[in-house]
Design a protein around this nucleic acid. Structure first.
Lengths: 218, 218
DNA sequence: TAGATTGTTAATCGATTAACAATC
DNA sequence: TAGATTGTTAATCGATTAACAATC
């Protein structure tokens, strides 16, 4: 391992590698080359080798990477080899979807508490969890050792919820609300903003919608 | 306007600009400088000016950008000045959340049809839409002029659904399933994979979890 | 006019890719 | 040994930022 600073682009690719490796593992594939991975992910094999080499020598020259071993290593790098508790605020449709995905976020990440700002939601049961009121957030985050907060409330309430999470002591926030959050520097925020993806998708549509052949006169 | 090729990074920032501009507009702000926008978004003002300048001269020297005018222009660029119909497959929790968000995706984008692969789901009502069976997908996409497909089914079914969407003639797909899709080259795919964001967030946690001051001996 | 801010060119920075020695 | 594939250095590419003339 080197004490080098790893760029965000590299870190963001690790979960993608993990996803493909888990796939291969389920299909009992023992070994994979950077070439194979590159084909599956439309990435340059050199980039994959370089990404992995930041963290150690995981491959074998002439052979490739052992799938199980590489999964284990990437899990370690992402700190998914230890349990990580997550709290969620916003028991609406999206929040409930994420709670039910819990099996999905299996990799030692678990939503262990759900909160809502609306008293009418409090007490409801979601996938075995009882929705708690916001004034229980601080003590629950401490008691359950919650490190990450997920925000699935409307944009207008998001900053307020983020402040509560930070005050309660979480180190990271995943924000689904379409708004930029301001927090103390040491708290890391990731955005899961699908509207961005959807709206930017629209940009690329008419390149095909306008049939360029129609304008060709022979 | 220039006939230049615009990079994906630029296009992805446009919806973010739009978001902030809509915010400003609601608060009756008339004019905004690239400096202001940069502060709000943690972006370099020069980058914002450059991004916008790819598409035209929208600002006024010494003044800044007219908020309403810039919103209009970005809407045009993203083709949100015309209605755009969207179909969704997967009426589970996440699918339902997106359908109910319809107000959100107001910008002339609308989910106009919902499908599910499971017969037991068919016929259910979601936000005024009746869930249709998959064998109605092709005719509905044609009849409703659906250009974009959203996939909210489990990973294992996602490629199959994508194939159906492509066969039916959509030009773009927004995939929420954590899997890479293979489609004809002319179909554009965007990924809304929040597991990637969540897992990569874990990587950054212990940088603060390990209190570096504790190791300092004076 | 003086101050502010754009649009754009040039400089910088960082990320991706090619190439190859090492080695299984 | 010959073929395959890694880890890594050097070359390339592209994106970000700085700087500034134009101008409101």
């Amino acid at each position: 391992m080197k004490p080098m600073k790893i760029s965000e682009a590299v870190v963001r690719r690790l979960p993608v590698y993990l996803q493909v490796l888990n796939d291969l593992n389920m299909r009992d594939v023992q070994t994979v080359s950077s070439q194979d991975l590159g084909n599956k992910l439309d990435l340059n094999p050199a980039q994959i080798r370089k990404d992995l080499a930041y963290f150690g020598d995981f491959g074998r020259k002439g052979i490739g990477y052992d799938v199980t071993y590489l999964i284990e290593k990437i899990r370690q790098i992402l700190k998914l080899d230890q349990p990580l508790n997550v709290g969620l605020v916003g028991a609406g449709n999206l929040g409930r979807a994420l709670c039910n995905y819990n099996t999905y976020l299996k990799d030692n990440m678990k939503i262990t508490a759900v909160f809502d700002v609306h008293p009418s939601m409090v007490g409801a049961s979601i996938n075995g969890l009882t929705v708690l009121p916001m004034d229980k957030l601080k003590e629950t985050v401490a008691a359950c050792n919650i490190r990450i907060g997920i925000i699935t409330v409307p944009a207008i309430e998001a900053q307020n919820v983020a402040d509560k999470f930070v005050e309660a002591g979480v180190d990271g926030i995943l924000n689904f609300a379409p708004t930029i959050l301001r927090v103390q520097e040491h708290v890391r925020i990731h955005y899961a903003n699908f509207t961005t993806e959807l709206l930017s998708l629209a940009y690329y549509l008419d390149e095909e919608g306008v049939d360029e052949n129609e304008t060709v006169v022979d």
